[in-house]
Each structure stands twice: as C-alpha cells, then as structure tokens.
C-alpha cells in the first residue's frame, strides 16, 4: 500500500495521533481521493459494529434531544437572529477596535451584570477559538456568532512573509473539511459564512491552519502542511 493508503486506513481506525493525525485531517479536507479512501475503510469496517449488543438508554433521552434542538442546536436556528445581537455587532464595527476579543469584552460591559439582556442571545452562544502559531506568543483568534453566521478572524500580530499564505480549515468529525479562507496577516477580518459551513460550527468544532502558496490551496490541489490547530468552544 502507498503511504496515503496506509494513512487513510490508520485514520479510519483511529490509530493516529500528533502530526500524523493533523496530516490526515488536512488530507481529508483537501484531497477527495483520500477522503474517499477513508470513507471506504469505514464502510468496510462498520459491520464489525453489528456484533455489539443493542441496549436501551433512559426513556427521556428523546425529549431531551428535542429540547436541545429547540434551543438552537439545529440548522433552522441559524435564522433566529435577534435584533439586539445585530445592534451589538454594528456597535462593535463602529468602535473599530483592533481585536475581536477586546470588542467582545466591551460588548459585555455594555450589559453590566444585573441588567438582563434578552434571552435569545444566550440561546445561541458565541464561540471562540485560539489557534497558536508554533512556539511564538502569537495566535490567530476567532470569534464566531452563530446568529449572524459571522466569523471574526484576528491575525493582528502576524506579518506576511511574501511567499506563503495561511489557510484556515474547518474539520468536521464526518466528511471532508472545508476552507474557511486565507488568513490576512496584520488584520481583523469579518467573514460571513455560507449556511452549509455555518451549520457545521459548534462547541468543539476542530480547526486546522495550513501553509499554502500565496492565494491559498487552489481547487483540486492538495492542502499544504498543517502548521497549527485549534478548537471552537462556547464563551
């Protein structure tokens, strides 16, 4: 078997960790043949699960799942944009702060503890992720607002080297990872995500950063090496 065929099998089985795991995730994201090979292994291995005896969870689990979906864990909820959240967003823009994290802290001050912000804001909590850059103190910081489907990418301390770009990828637990775009060094950018990407982002969503030629990985080409990774979590 070739190196890639091995890697696909190893990834499907869950044998990998560290750099190999990152490389496999990057390939699932960028190489349809590799993603296909992983899916084929999974399909072939899945009948092993038939030998596991079925079991019955507690009876109120389904109502609980329904309740969680009502609270905005589902795709339909992305449409529930509340006016207040829009206001806060516009206000963040108006302040022109250089860091989305700082903007968030200020936004919080706008509603001091004790005053009640409308509830729907809490129903769709914002997510944040920090993608540290190697051994440096630098990081790419992300804030994602589900209601707005808007992601703020802060790469304030970074400098372009003129040879490479860095591309950010969302790595879903199932299926191919998808590009969230090329990171612009030294900027804070707001990116409006299409719905198909937006619905995949939640607490625990995995991210990887790859090094690419200027302009990012072209369609149909293999993604460059994974240089960093991070994870969204609710804030």
């Amino acid at each position: 078997m070739t190196d890639h065929t091995h890697l696909a099998a190893e990834y499907a089985l869950g044998l990998l960790e560290g750099e190999d795991l990152m490389r496999a995730r990057g390939l699932v994201a960028s190489d349809p043949d590799f993603a296909e090979a992983v899916a084929r292994w999974e399909t072939q291995l899945s009948p092993l699960l038939d030998e596991v005896p079925a079991a019955t969870p507690r009876a109120d689990l389904w109502p609980q799942i329904e309740a969680a979906l009502e609270q905005g864990a589902g795709p339909a909820a992305a449409a529930n944009v509340v006016p207040l959240q829009q206001q806060v967003t516009r206000w963040k823009w108006a302040t022109g702060v250089t860091s989305a994290a700082a903007a968030l802290a200020l936004a919080f001050l706008a509603f001091p503890p004790g005053t009640s912000a409308p509830l729907p804001v809490a129903a769709q909590p914002e997510l944040a992720a920090v993608v540290p850059i190697g051994d440096t103190a630098l990081s790419i910081d992300l804030i994602y607002q589900p209601g707005e489907r808007r992601m703020y990418v802060t790469a304030a301390g970074l400098e372009a080297d003129g040879v490479h770009d860095h591309e950010l990828w969302l790595v879903p637990p199932e299926g191919a990872a998808q590009s969230l775009g090329v990171v612009e060094p030294g900027t804070v950018k707001a990116v409006d995500l299409p719905e198909n990407l937006a619905v995949q982002i939640g607490d625990g969503s995995q991210l990887v950063l790859t090094r690419e030629p200027l302009g990012g990985a072209g369609p149909g080409t293999e993604a460059g090496p994974v240089v960093a990774n991070g994870e969204f979590s609710t804030i």
Binding site: L69, G74, P172, E174, Q200
Partner: peptide, 9 residues
C-alpha cells in the same frame, strides 16, 4: 444532534 446537522453528508 450532529445527525440533524449532517444528515446531508
């Protein structure tokens, strides 16, 4: 809950 989001895959 994940299935609700990803059934399309």
């Amino acid at each position: 809950i994940s299935l609700w989001r990803r059934a399309a895959s």
